[in-house]
Design a protein around this nucleic acid. Structure first.
Lengths: 366, 366
DNA sequence: CTTCTTGCCGAAACCGGTTTCGGTAGTCAG
DNA sequence: CTGACTACCGAAACCGGTTTCGGCAAGAAG
């Protein structure tokens, strides 16, 4: 007895407290301790408490890999980042990631990350992560229409949660930001400033958010009785380059808009470029409202008016939701939508020229 | 044969191929298979081969959590991201992370990520990750002078690898970019363009890279026989704001420099702001050379001339190095330095004004 | 022809947990 | 007083691997 205690103590210098240590200290068996900690009903309340206290006191923390081999659960969340996404994804990946890992470690869970360089590789990576039990569930960011990841996870019956929504909600828990409301509010705001012709440069239409934001923009226009000019509409601009091209096309039409709403900030960056090229001053000649709240927007002159998303908070929520989902909680309680917050900076002001004047100005410059 | 294939297919629906499946298929015991796969010397070459083939054919992959409980090794790399670092860290975290996870999964390893919001929390997080065996080793980014993380890992005798170097190399493997060479080359380049007064805005001096880059700048100056003006030297600017403040201070001196070298791109962003404020045109009135190669630099006008670092590649290398380190490889072979690559864009040109003319111009503007 | 190695593999313990299966003691009804 | 439950816990198997130990057969040495 003494011998063993000594041995254990000696070992505790570097080795961990095991369940056997706890059970011996209490004069119980491992199985009792295990069931007590896992809230089995055949353990009396009194011993459950004793076990709890002693575990706490001895600093016992079950080894997750040991649990995993029997339970199949590793208490870790999986995230596969796809590199092609980067252009649009990069600006907030850091915050997003920080939020996710915060949420995970807050519950004693771990975050396991892998990367893939194509959609196919992503699927393959998820598949092996499931097979090798690297994660008990997955967080899916940038969800797309008919997302193959969702199909895979549904079929494999592995829990997951979306950053985004899905038209087909089967098996889907999610946390999303109301981008459509933001787009609508952007239109409202611009209209209030006096704009009557408003253009729209949307992000990727194959992502779930694309159609939603477009609808939000259209709703906003309809609400205040404006008819969007198809020539002022551009889709699938997720980079500054694409945004520049799109805005150039829009501003060189016969009667250009006095304001442009962007589905993503990166595209708004391109609008700035176009404005510089066409010698239009942002915030007066041409107003811009973005969406995302990327840091870069505050480095512009004037600063970009936008709808900011707290990606850290979203990440935290997603972890929490996924953990509850893995715990078997009902899907319906695991869907939430939060609003983006308006950041009124300098890029949206009263129009100082009419569409005709703008067209003239553009023509002069080119 | 057909039977087994069927069985495998059937099993692959949900269950994995275990070591027992392999051993039974071969008429051997688990222990033999295990030792064969782990290259024990008491296994004949022929059976080792048979085991290899069969494992391959059956698609056997040992369950890492099962191995972990006996070996203590989980085949996963740890990374703790500290949120306070973000300002300077954020621009390339995405690439860096992608590289790390690429490198890890290339060798069948996993990347486990946690986040902390303070240096103390970082230490605590690393400590629990070690205790709970969440990672076999750690990647330390943004290493600092007297980094407490290094001290902890050294003491705990846990393998780690630095993105950066350490003055005290004990126990340290690393991969780093030769920032000092870049700074020196920046000076050379500017001197060649005709600049004689060159300012320097360095990044964080408490990071290991800080003193190195400063030294590189000074070496460059000395090499071409220029004496740096202390008034043209600013340290610890890792954000655009700090860069703006620093450059403003530098450009409002009695005889301002015609060029400024920045230790980090983020600071260079601030120089652009100051230039705009002082109505100096970048690339002619004032030249700027940065370091890091952040995306944002290409959105500026003119684009930022800088020394780009391939953070993805660095991440990949770091994973590879750490895995070898965990494997017990010798430290000396696990240290490598790579150069940054010069990106000559528009922000470094021939000076079109003398220092005196610049001072006059600045005075007029203010 | 023994005896001693050496090469090679099987048997079984082990890692740190979880889960199944009984078994004992106490309670209550008949 | 007996029998049937019920509450509670111990014993042992189990998860999927790794590692120790021992034994057998073949070859080398005496």
């Amino acid at each position: 007895m003494i011998n063993r205690t000594d041995q254990k103590h000696e070992a505790s210098v570097h080795l961990r407290v095991t369940i056997s240590d706890v059970s011996e200290a209490l004069g119980l068996t491992k199985s009792t301790v295990s069931r007590a900690l896992n809230n089995y009903s055949d353990i009396s309340e009194s011993t459950r408490l004793r076990v709890r206290r002693m575990s706490e006191q001895m600093g016992y923390r079950p080894l997750s890999s040991a649990q995993a081999i029997r339970t199949g659960r590793s208490r870790s969340l999986g995230l596969v980042i796809q590199q092609a996404d980067h252009d649009a994804y990069r600006p907030f990946l850091a915050e997003f990631l920080a939020g996710i890992s915060q949420g995970a470690s807050a519950e004693g869970w771990t975050l396991t990350i892998a990367s893939a360089d194509s959609p196919e590789a992503t699927i393959e990576t998820i598949r092996t992560m499931i097979r090798d039990r690297k994660a008990d569930g997955f967080i899916l960011a940038r969800t797309m229409l008919n997302d193959p990841r969702i199909a895979l996870l549904r079929e494999a019956d592995v829990p997951f949660v979306l950053f985004g929504r899905s038209p087909d909600p089967v098996g889907c828990a999610w946390h999303d930001v109301l981008g459509e409301d933001a787009m609508r509010d952007a239109v409202r705001h611009l209209a209030q400033l006096g704009h009557r012709k408003i253009g729209f440069i949307n992000g990727g239409m194959h992502y779930n958010y694309g159609p939603l934001r477009l609808q939000g923009f259209l709703d906003g226009m309809a609400e205040i009785g404006l008819v969007p000019d198809p020539a002022h509409l551009r889709l699938d601009a997720v980079t500054a380059e694409a945004g520049a091209v799109a805005s150039r096309a829009i501003m060189t039409t016969a009667s250009p808009p006095t304001a442009i709403v962007c589905g993503v900030d990166m595209a708004a960056l391109g609008v700035y470029r176009t404005a510089a090229e066409l010698q239009l001053s942002i915030g007066s000649d041409l107003s811009v409202v973005g969406y995302d709240g990327i840091q870069e927007g505050t480095h512009l002159k004037p600063q970009l008016t936008t709808f900011a998303v707290d990606h850290t908070a979203s990440g935290r929520r997603l972890s929490a939701l996924l953990i509850r989902r893995i715990g078997g909680e009902d899907l319906e309680t695991l869907r939430e939508l939060v609003p983006a917050t308006f950041r009124d900076r300098g890029s949206a002001g009263r129009p100082n020229r009419t569409s005709a004047q703008l067209a003239e100005q553009v023509a002069r410059t080119l």
